[in-house]
């Protein structure tokens, strides 16, 4: 039902993002999707990667603070209004979204939208009930 997202603490300093991504590049890890939340002093980097376990091991070795967050990913058509429909369902049911980001892939038509909500279970059931297709870990790994 949920997929793995890496959440990484990163200082707001020159070269930090370059260092971090080069660690992943050396391990031949593909970044599927990414989003950054930034403040004046630090940022939180959120990544969906091709191999979560190896990415964690490589990042921890460099002394990084990294955690795994369970997020929901839905597959929607790449057409105007499709994201709005899904967000409306959530909002009508008082499920607030902490953060959201989207990505498209080459292999498939359509897009993926990643949601972070407080209660994954409730949100997943609700969306499924409304016919929204949730991506599984296998779906993401197969990309």
């Amino acid at each position: 039902m949920t997929i793995n997202q890496l959440s990484i603490f990163i200082e707001n300093k020159e070269g930090k993002l370059a260092d971090l991504t080069s660690t992943l590049a050396k391990e031949n890890i593909d970044i599927r999707a990414m989003s950054v939340a930034d403040t004046q002093d630090f940022g939180i980097l959120r990544l969906i990667v091709s191999d979560t376990d190896r990415a964690i091991a490589a990042l921890k070795e460099t002394g990084c603070i990294v955690s795994v967050t369970q997020v929901l990913a839905i597959s929607i058509s790449d057409t105007p209004g499709s994201l709005s429909t899904v967000l409306r369902i959530l909002s009508d049911n008082h499920i607030s979204v902490e953060y959201v980001y989207a990505f498209i892939t080459r292999r498939q038509e359509g897009a993926y939208v990643v949601f972070r909500v407080a209660d994954n279970q409730a949100a997943a059931e609700l969306l499924t009930k409304h016919g929204v297709k949730l991506a599984t870990k296998d779906d993401i790994d197969a990309l």
């Binding site: 997202q5 959440s7 603490f9 939340a37 403040t39 630090f42 939180i44 959120r46 603070i65 955690s67 967050t69 902490e98 953060y99 972070r116």
Partner: peptide
């Protein structure tokens, strides 16, 4: 230094 105990994936929690 940030610690695993304090870190979260949301800015809100860290703040």
């Amino acid at each position: 230094e940030m610690s695993a105990d304090v870190f979260s994936d949301t800015v809100r929690n860290i703040s």
